[in-house]
Protein backbone atom coordinates (compact mmCIF):
# COMPACT_ATOMS: atom_id res chain seq x y z
CA UNK A 1 0.00 0.00 0.00
CA UNK A 2 2.66 2.42 1.10
CA UNK A 3 4.77 1.34 -1.79
CA UNK A 4 1.90 2.03 -4.13
CA UNK A 5 1.46 5.54 -2.83
CA UNK A 6 5.16 6.21 -3.03
CA UNK A 7 5.39 4.93 -6.55
CA UNK A 8 2.26 6.81 -7.48
CA UNK A 9 3.71 10.02 -6.15
CA UNK A 10 6.96 9.45 -7.98
CA UNK A 11 5.09 8.68 -11.15
CA UNK A 12 3.05 11.82 -10.77
CA UNK A 13 6.13 13.95 -10.27
CA UNK A 14 7.87 12.24 -13.13
CA UNK A 15 4.95 12.63 -15.50
CA UNK A 16 4.44 16.23 -14.51
CA UNK A 17 8.09 16.96 -15.17
CA UNK A 18 8.02 15.20 -18.49
CA UNK A 19 4.90 17.12 -19.49
CA UNK A 20 6.52 20.35 -18.53
CA UNK A 21 9.70 19.64 -20.38
CA UNK A 22 7.61 18.60 -23.36
CA UNK A 23 5.59 21.82 -23.19
CA UNK A 24 8.75 23.90 -22.97
CA UNK A 25 10.25 21.95 -25.83
CA UNK A 26 7.12 22.37 -27.88
CA UNK A 27 7.06 26.06 -27.15
CA UNK A 28 10.70 26.39 -28.05
CA UNK A 29 10.07 24.53 -31.27
CA UNK A 30 7.12 26.75 -31.95
CA UNK A 31 9.13 29.92 -31.38
CA UNK A 32 11.92 28.50 -33.53
CA UNK A 33 9.48 27.69 -36.32
CA UNK A 34 8.01 31.13 -36.05
CA UNK A 35 11.42 32.75 -36.27
CA UNK A 36 12.26 30.58 -39.25
CA UNK A 37 9.15 31.59 -41.12
CA UNK A 38 9.60 35.20 -40.04
CA UNK A 39 12.89 35.25 -41.83
CA UNK A 40 11.52 33.60 -44.98
CA UNK A 41 10.14 35.54 -47.84
CA UNK A 42 7.61 36.34 -48.95
CA UNK A 43 5.98 37.56 -45.81
CA UNK A 44 2.24 37.70 -46.16
CA UNK A 45 1.87 41.39 -45.58
CA UNK A 46 -1.83 41.38 -46.37
CA UNK A 47 -2.54 39.13 -43.42
CA UNK A 48 -0.09 41.11 -41.32
CA UNK A 49 -1.93 44.34 -42.10
CA UNK A 50 -5.21 42.76 -41.05
CA UNK A 51 -3.66 41.65 -37.81
CA UNK A 52 -2.06 45.04 -37.24
CA UNK A 53 -5.45 46.65 -37.51
CA UNK A 54 -6.81 44.05 -35.14
CA UNK A 55 -4.03 44.27 -32.58
CA UNK A 56 -3.20 47.91 -33.02
CA UNK A 57 -5.97 50.16 -34.21
CA UNK A 58 -8.82 48.11 -32.77
CA UNK A 59 -7.14 47.83 -29.39
CA UNK A 60 -6.68 51.56 -29.19
CA UNK A 61 -10.00 52.43 -27.54
CA UNK A 62 -9.45 50.12 -24.61
CA UNK A 63 -5.80 51.14 -24.31
CA UNK A 64 -6.89 54.77 -24.41
CA UNK A 65 -9.40 54.19 -21.67
CA UNK A 66 -6.94 52.30 -19.49
CA UNK A 67 -4.09 54.75 -19.92
CA UNK A 68 -6.30 57.78 -19.46
CA UNK A 69 -7.69 56.64 -16.17
CA UNK A 70 -4.37 55.32 -14.98
CA UNK A 71 -2.81 58.70 -15.61
CA UNK A 72 -5.66 60.40 -13.82
CA UNK A 73 -5.46 58.13 -10.81
CA UNK A 74 -1.68 58.48 -10.70
CA UNK A 75 -2.04 62.23 -10.56
CA UNK A 76 -4.61 62.05 -7.80
CA UNK A 77 -2.66 59.57 -5.73
CA UNK A 78 0.74 61.12 -6.08
CA UNK A 79 -0.74 64.51 -5.39
CA UNK A 80 -2.16 63.23 -2.12
CA UNK A 81 1.24 61.91 -1.16
CA UNK A 82 3.29 64.84 -2.31
CA UNK A 83 1.00 67.36 -0.72
CA UNK A 84 2.03 66.03 2.64
CA UNK A 85 5.50 67.36 2.14
CA UNK A 86 4.78 70.18 -0.22
CA UNK A 87 6.10 68.68 -3.43
CA UNK A 88 2.94 68.96 -5.49
CA UNK A 89 4.93 70.15 -8.45
CA UNK A 90 6.42 66.67 -8.78
CA UNK A 91 3.09 65.12 -9.75
CA UNK A 92 3.81 65.63 -13.42
CA UNK A 93 7.21 64.05 -13.03
CA UNK A 94 5.77 61.01 -11.34
CA UNK A 95 2.98 60.59 -13.85
CA UNK A 96 5.34 61.05 -16.78
CA UNK A 97 8.00 58.71 -15.54
CA UNK A 98 5.55 56.07 -14.34
CA UNK A 99 3.73 56.07 -17.63
CA UNK A 100 6.74 55.98 -19.93
CA UNK A 101 8.89 53.62 -17.94
CA UNK A 102 6.45 51.18 -16.49
CA UNK A 103 2.73 51.64 -16.73
CA UNK A 104 2.52 52.54 -20.39
CA UNK A 105 4.28 49.40 -21.61
CA UNK A 106 2.95 47.02 -18.99
CA UNK A 107 -0.67 48.14 -18.94
CA UNK A 108 -0.82 48.23 -22.70
CA UNK A 109 0.64 44.74 -22.80
CA UNK A 110 -1.88 43.46 -20.30
CA UNK A 111 -4.78 45.04 -22.07
CA UNK A 112 -3.65 43.74 -25.43
CA UNK A 113 -3.10 40.30 -23.97
CA UNK A 114 -6.65 40.28 -22.74
CA UNK A 115 -8.04 41.65 -25.92
CA UNK A 116 -5.91 40.55 -28.85
CA UNK A 117 -3.81 37.74 -27.41
CA UNK A 118 -6.89 35.87 -26.29
CA UNK A 119 -8.52 36.53 -29.65
CA UNK A 120 -5.50 34.99 -31.37
CA UNK A 121 -5.82 31.90 -29.22
CA UNK A 122 -9.53 31.66 -29.86
CA UNK A 123 -9.09 32.07 -33.61
CA UNK A 124 -6.27 29.59 -33.93
CA UNK A 125 -7.89 27.23 -31.45
CA UNK A 126 -11.09 27.21 -33.42
CA UNK A 127 -9.14 26.63 -36.59
CA UNK A 128 -7.37 23.78 -34.90
CA UNK A 129 -10.48 22.01 -33.62
CA UNK A 130 -12.37 22.50 -36.89
CA UNK A 131 -9.40 21.06 -38.76
CA UNK A 132 -8.74 24.27 -40.65
CA UNK A 133 -5.11 24.06 -39.63
CA UNK A 134 -4.97 20.53 -40.96
CA UNK A 135 -6.63 21.80 -44.11
CA UNK A 136 -3.88 24.34 -44.50
CA UNK A 137 -1.32 21.56 -44.28
CA UNK A 138 -3.15 19.52 -46.91
CA UNK A 139 -3.12 22.57 -49.16
CA UNK A 140 0.66 22.66 -48.77
CA UNK A 141 0.45 25.89 -46.86
CA UNK A 142 2.34 26.14 -43.59
CA UNK A 143 0.00 27.43 -40.89
CA UNK A 144 2.90 28.99 -38.98
CA UNK A 145 3.64 31.08 -42.00
CA UNK A 146 0.02 31.80 -42.79
CA UNK A 147 -1.38 32.31 -39.35
CA UNK A 148 1.35 32.84 -36.78
CA UNK A 149 3.89 35.02 -38.51
CA UNK A 150 1.47 37.82 -39.41
CA UNK A 151 0.20 37.88 -35.84
CA UNK A 152 3.67 37.99 -34.36
CA UNK A 153 4.66 40.76 -36.73
CA UNK A 154 1.53 42.69 -35.81
CA UNK A 155 2.01 42.17 -32.09
CA UNK A 156 5.66 43.13 -32.09
CA UNK A 157 5.18 46.22 -34.22
CA UNK A 158 1.90 47.45 -32.84
CA UNK A 159 2.63 47.24 -29.13
CA UNK A 160 5.19 50.06 -29.23
CA UNK A 161 2.77 52.20 -31.21
CA UNK A 162 0.03 51.53 -28.69
CA UNK A 163 2.47 52.17 -25.87
CA UNK A 164 3.52 55.54 -27.24
CA UNK A 165 -0.12 56.45 -27.37
CA UNK A 166 -0.71 55.11 -23.88
CA UNK A 167 2.22 57.20 -22.61
CA UNK A 168 0.73 60.25 -24.22
CA UNK A 169 -2.82 59.59 -23.10
CA UNK A 170 -1.69 58.79 -19.56
CA UNK A 171 0.30 62.01 -19.35
CA UNK A 172 -2.72 63.80 -20.75
CA UNK A 173 -4.99 62.18 -18.17
CA UNK A 174 -2.68 63.21 -15.35
CA UNK A 175 -2.49 66.68 -16.82
CA UNK A 176 -6.26 67.01 -16.98
CA UNK A 177 -6.71 65.93 -13.37
CA UNK A 178 -3.82 68.00 -12.07
CA UNK A 179 -4.83 71.16 -13.90
CA UNK A 180 -8.60 70.95 -13.76
CA UNK A 181 -9.12 69.26 -10.44
CA UNK A 182 -6.04 69.97 -8.37
CA UNK A 183 -5.33 73.42 -9.69
CA UNK A 184 -1.82 72.80 -10.92
CA UNK A 185 -0.15 75.32 -13.18
CA UNK A 186 -0.45 73.77 -16.64
CA UNK A 187 2.83 75.12 -17.97
CA UNK A 188 4.74 74.11 -14.87
CA UNK A 189 3.10 70.71 -14.90
CA UNK A 190 4.25 70.01 -18.42
CA UNK A 191 7.68 71.36 -17.66
CA UNK A 192 7.98 69.09 -14.65
CA UNK A 193 6.70 66.17 -16.65
CA UNK A 194 9.61 66.35 -19.01
CA UNK A 195 12.24 68.00 -16.85
CA UNK A 196 13.55 64.75 -15.45
CA UNK A 197 12.56 62.52 -18.34
CA UNK A 198 15.20 61.15 -20.61
CA UNK A 199 15.09 59.45 -23.96
CA UNK A 200 16.06 56.28 -22.22
CA UNK A 201 12.91 56.37 -20.13
CA UNK A 202 10.68 56.36 -23.15
CA UNK A 203 12.71 54.24 -25.54
CA UNK A 204 13.43 51.53 -23.05
CA UNK A 205 9.69 51.51 -22.38
CA UNK A 206 9.09 51.07 -26.08
CA UNK A 207 11.72 48.36 -26.33
CA UNK A 208 9.99 46.59 -23.48
CA UNK A 209 6.67 46.88 -25.20
CA UNK A 210 8.12 45.33 -28.34
CA UNK A 211 9.20 42.31 -26.35
CA UNK A 212 5.79 42.23 -24.72
CA UNK A 213 4.14 42.34 -28.12
CA UNK A 214 6.23 39.40 -29.26
CA UNK A 215 5.36 37.47 -26.10
CA UNK A 216 1.66 38.21 -26.38
CA UNK A 217 1.38 37.09 -29.98
CA UNK A 218 3.62 34.04 -29.65
CA UNK A 219 1.82 32.84 -26.53
CA UNK A 220 -1.57 33.58 -28.05
CA UNK A 221 -0.73 31.66 -31.20
CA UNK A 222 0.99 28.84 -29.38
CA UNK A 223 -1.96 28.20 -27.11
CA UNK A 224 -4.35 28.34 -30.03
CA UNK A 225 -2.17 26.25 -32.25
CA UNK A 226 -2.03 23.36 -29.85
CA UNK A 227 -5.62 23.51 -28.71
CA UNK A 228 -7.27 20.18 -28.08
CA UNK A 229 -10.77 19.18 -27.14
CA UNK A 230 -13.25 21.03 -29.26
CA UNK A 231 -15.09 24.20 -28.33
CA UNK A 232 -14.42 23.65 -24.67
CA UNK A 233 -10.75 23.25 -25.43
CA UNK A 234 -10.80 26.63 -27.15
CA UNK A 235 -12.14 28.19 -23.98
CA UNK A 236 -9.49 26.57 -21.82
CA UNK A 237 -6.77 27.51 -24.24
CA UNK A 238 -7.89 31.11 -24.22
CA UNK A 239 -7.76 31.25 -20.45
CA UNK A 240 -4.36 29.59 -20.42
CA UNK A 241 -3.13 31.99 -23.03
CA UNK A 242 -4.09 35.03 -20.96
CA UNK A 243 -2.64 33.60 -17.76
CA UNK A 244 0.58 32.54 -19.41
CA UNK A 245 0.78 35.85 -21.24
CA UNK A 246 0.42 37.84 -18.01
CA UNK A 247 3.00 35.77 -16.22
CA UNK A 248 5.54 35.98 -18.99
CA UNK A 249 4.97 39.71 -19.33
CA UNK A 250 5.64 40.30 -15.64
CA UNK A 251 8.66 38.06 -15.73
CA UNK A 252 10.02 39.70 -18.85
CA UNK A 253 9.24 43.11 -17.41
CA UNK A 254 11.38 42.41 -14.40
CA UNK A 255 14.24 41.02 -16.42
CA UNK A 256 14.10 43.84 -18.94
CA UNK A 257 13.85 46.50 -16.27
CA UNK A 258 16.85 45.02 -14.52
CA UNK A 259 18.74 44.93 -17.80
CA UNK A 260 17.66 48.25 -19.25
CA UNK A 261 17.63 50.46 -16.20
CA UNK A 262 20.17 48.90 -13.92
CA UNK A 263 23.47 50.24 -15.15
CA UNK A 264 23.22 53.98 -14.85
CA UNK A 265 21.15 55.43 -17.64
CA UNK A 266 17.79 56.71 -16.64
CA UNK A 267 17.72 54.42 -13.65
CA UNK A 268 20.09 56.35 -11.53
CA UNK A 269 18.46 59.62 -12.29
CA UNK A 270 15.38 59.39 -10.16
Amino acid sequence: MLKKIAVGTLEFVGRYTIDMVKAIGLMGEFVGDTMKWLSRKPLRMGAAVDQMVEVGANSFPVVFFTAMFTGMVLALQSHTGFKRFGAESMVGTVVGLSMTRELGPVLTALVVTGRAGSAMTAQLGTMRVTEQIDALYTLAANPIKYLVVPRVIAGTLMLPVLTVMADFVGILGGFVVAVMLLGANPVLYMEKTFEFMEYNDMFSGLLKSMVFGFIISVVGCYQGFYTEGGAEGVGTATTKSVVMGFMLIFLANYILTALLFSNGGGGAKF
Partner: peptide, 11 residues
Protein backbone atom coordinates in the same frame (compact mmCIF):
# COMPACT_ATOMS: atom_id res chain seq x y z
CA UNK B 1 2.82 61.19 -30.64
CA UNK B 2 6.28 59.66 -30.68
CA UNK B 3 7.64 62.79 -32.28
CA UNK B 4 5.95 65.01 -29.75
CA UNK B 5 7.18 62.98 -26.80
CA UNK B 6 10.69 62.82 -28.19
CA UNK B 7 10.74 66.52 -28.74
CA UNK B 8 9.29 67.25 -25.32
CA UNK B 9 11.87 65.14 -23.60
CA UNK B 10 14.77 66.31 -25.66
CA UNK B 11 13.65 69.77 -26.68
Amino acid sequence: VLFWLTFSIGG
